[in-house]
Design a protein around this nucleic acid. Structure first.
Lengths: 153, 153
DNA sequence: TCAGTTTACATGCTTTTGCATCTACTGACA
DNA sequence: TGTCAGTAGATGCAAAAGCATGTAAACTGA
């Protein structure tokens, strides 16, 4: 009871999660309606965003899939559509002939940056009034710690 | 610069949001695969969950829609399906003949509780190792403050 | 009080999603 | 080195989602 690092109560974890989840829904709902997502659905932007953050530029399809909530077949087809739109390119992985690697095209990178800039600004306008600089940093710290500490399986 | 409650930097807000969002994705991906969501898709459970938290039992469709990320027509049809499964019931709102109110049926409430119990336990197993009791409470505090402080429009 | 606007939900139609399954390749082990 | 389980992604098909629009009720303001 007097431990500094006491094991959390089941109620505490579930309430914290529920609050985090509800907050995510509230923010996403507002963002979905913003004009930057008329050009490209948010899920598709999310793919471009993830690709833009990959150091080598190329990402394995299965790896990308882990950062998204859609199923493997859905991603497979979404990439197909993004390729048809000229936003991403694909190639078979060199070291594994089963695998596919994808990357942004020039056009895809440009679109991601264009949407990204506006998006970040809207996000800031929406969220900044709610917390102080210090509180946002705490929030980032806690969510990162939570994410890296999740028990697998 | 020396303010205790300094306005957050644009970088700080977007990094905090990205971290929160990625954490949500990481948790949701793991949860989606858990056996409790074989019976009922997570989005459908989410509807039952929201209904279970309504004090009067009955909720307006448009009000419920605000707590979800799906579109109004999608919710309309989801409720139709949930009604067909016997999990929810609907009636026209008394004070507004345009409106629909829905509530859980006995069966719906039972199923929500059944899934909810397992779900909360799995959530706890997954998340508890990552943060302390105090940190979860901070996380809850910050996400609640963020949610209530979001600027509308 | 009544024309015009707005709001709440339903519906037609297309696109996207997911499940189950298939194919092709890899890696491990005998 | 050949068999066999496991993995990566594609594909057929049914379910669900979204967009545009329809209908009906509720406000609004001359």
């Amino acid at each position: 009871m007097a431990d500094e690092e006491s094991q959390p109560q089941i109620r505490t974890t579930s309430e914290a999660w529920e609050s985090l989840f509800r907050t995510q829904v509230a923010v996403m709902r507002r963002m979905q309606q913003l004009p930057e997502f008329k050009k490209l659905a948010m899920r598709e932007y999310d793919v471009l965003f993830n690709l833009s953050h990959c150091p080598t530029g190329w990402t394995r399809l299965n790896e990308l899939n882990e950062a998204l909530l859609i199923s493997q077949p859905s991603l497979s087809r979404m990439v197909e559509r993004l390729e048809a739109k000229g936003l991403v390119q694909r190639r078979t992985a060199e070291r594994d002939q089963r695998g596919i690697e994808i990357a942004l095209t020039e056009e895809g990178r440009a679109l991601q940056q264009e949407i990204g800039r506006v998006h970040v600004r809207h996000l800031h306008e929406m969220l900044a009034p709610a917390l102080s600089e210090e509180e946002f940093k705490q929030l980032q710290f806690l969510t990162e710690k939570l994410r890296t500490g999740i028990k697998d399986r």
